[in-house]
């Protein structure tokens, strides 16, 4: 079954109903744009208003294509020489549609930014735009040059180093403020370590992870 079709009706509502039955999905999960709106009621009786729409069902494929188009447009407007590819297959999990996009650029790091700030900005904006168009439940992941994986690895290393410091000094170690995703990476990296525990402190963009040495850590046995 096609995911994208064009339909006509006397009103947007009417065209949507047709699209709904042709696509075989409920009206609520259809995203549409009005292509043409003509009002010929002055010509004669029976003609009336005509609305032509392009309707799209909300599927992993249509969400992925729309997200790709949105990100490509942003890059074009920035006059960056890069192409966007849909990585893996978009999938549906727990009612969330996950889309994975990869930017293939010149490798200059311009699209990554400091600690991935630019990459995160693309991801945030594309998510906002896509979730608006498809009324929620979409998660778009944006990556380039395998940055996400590298970041995860370097954060895991940092976490281990800092946990050693906490154990040695027996004092809490505060990390720099990190994004929610990065904080999760740190918590995950240290969750198996019984000699320390981790928690987050602070608010909003200033939220940071603290590594706290557990009382009476193993390894230093008394008696």
């Amino acid at each position: 079954m096609a995911d994208v079709i064009e339909t006509e009706g006397k009103s947007v509502e009417n065209a949507l109903e047709k699209a709904s039955s042709e696509l075989g999905v409920e009206k609520e999960s259809i995203t549409y744009e009005v292509l043409e709106e003509t009002d010929r009621s002055f010509i004669g009786i029976g003609m009336g208003k005509k609305v032509k729409i392009r309707a799209m069902a909300k599927t992993p494929e249509t969400v992925a294509e729309t997200a790709k188009k949105t990100l490509s447009t942003l890059l074009d407007l920035m006059e960056v020489n890069a192409v966007v590819e849909i990585q893996d297959k978009a999938l549906m999990e727990d009612d969330m549609i996950h889309v994975f996009l990869e930017i293939i650029g010149d490798g200059s790091g311009l699209l990554i930014g400091k600690h991935g700030a630019t990459l995160d900005a693309f991801q945030h904006l594309v998510n906002k735009i896509i979730n608006r168009r498809f009324s929620g439940s979409c998660n778009v992941h944006v990556d380039t040059e395998n940055y996400r994986k590298k970041r995860e690895e370097s954060l895991t290393q940092l976490a281990r180093r800092m946990s050693e410091k906490a154990k040695k000094t027996r004092k809490p170690v505060f990390l720099v403020p990190l994004s929610a995703k990065d904080r999760k990476t740190v918590h995950m990296a240290l969750k198996e370590d019984a000699e320390i525990h981790t928690k987050s402190t602070g608010e909003g963009p200033m939220k940071r992870v603290v590594i706290i040495p557990s009382k009476r850590a193993s390894g230093t046995s008394f008696n």
Partner: peptide
């Protein structure tokens, strides 16, 4: 918390840096 405005500014900065 100004996250979207910050994202727009970040993209704008990257484009300007170029």
């Amino acid at each position: 918390q100004g996250r979207t405005a910050r994202a727009i500014r970040t993209i704008l900065s990257a484009a300007s840096t170029k």
